[in-house]
Amino acid sequence: MSFAKIPKPDDLINIAYAPPASEWMKTPVDFRPGTWSYSAAGKNLASLDLPNPRAWQPTDEDWKLPENWKEIIIEGMRDRLGKYRSFRLFMDICVRCGACADKCHFYIGSGDPKNMPVLRAELLRSVYRRYFTTSGKRFGKLAGARDLTVDVLKEWFYYFYQCTECRRCSVFCPYGIDQAEITMMGRELLNLVGCNINWVLEPAANCFRTGNHLGIQPGGIKDMLEFMTDDIEDRTGVRVDVPLNKKGADILFVTPSADYFVGRRQFRPLCVPRHDQAP
């Protein structure tokens, strides 16, 4: 693991909120270390049947997109515009009042104007205007429309994964325009051409294949649970029975995989405390 240069508190709080001199459409994306997530490994896409599994990283010049990636994305947009009223409305309704601008904690923490919810949505909206509205097709840049290029795609990748979809922006927007919806659409579109992050897809692929997000196989799960019951017996003297795949059981108890990959401190909630003893 590389020990990246850790900034000092004074540097970290030195956030410049003034936008840069260049227009946002002309400001290229800079994949600086520490600002992007690694792309998903090919095997994870393959196990989930997602398109275009391959080895690539966002810092590569060539993202090895399929030949017709532009058509795929535009058709994907068309499809989603017909399925999600929120998407369609939010593409049309923003009045650029700026109430949302300094509400996103990514903007507050970085000062990057494209993390302002209004501008993050404009990344997608400008392409929507170009291909789906008459004024965008006819007036182009004047109507706030731009062509979909590879640079635009890279910008989408960079910024749509810088949203935690917390929806704080939607609280402050008069119409409730929701970056969570917009980044979900954006991420779905990126998925269509195989640009996703491993942080999302590896757990998803593992859950799909093994039922837990770490990809632990049956033997490993059994060992973990036995280790847990050993620990409980050490502390309480009670041997808890944890039936796995017991035939003829009446109840199937399914827990989130994080429940059985906990550290030792979290053991306490798993034990039922007696009301006359301090936990």
């Binding site: 409305l89 049309d92 309704i93 009045v95 004024s135 939607s170 008069p174 119409y175 409730g176």
Partner: peptide, 17 residues
């Protein structure tokens, strides 16, 4: 009707509200 001024009608239809 063809511009952002249609937010007058859109606000009624916003699923988030």
């Amino acid at each position: 009707p063809f511009s952002k001024l249609a937010h007058a009608g859109g606000i009624f239809m916003s699923p988030m509200r």
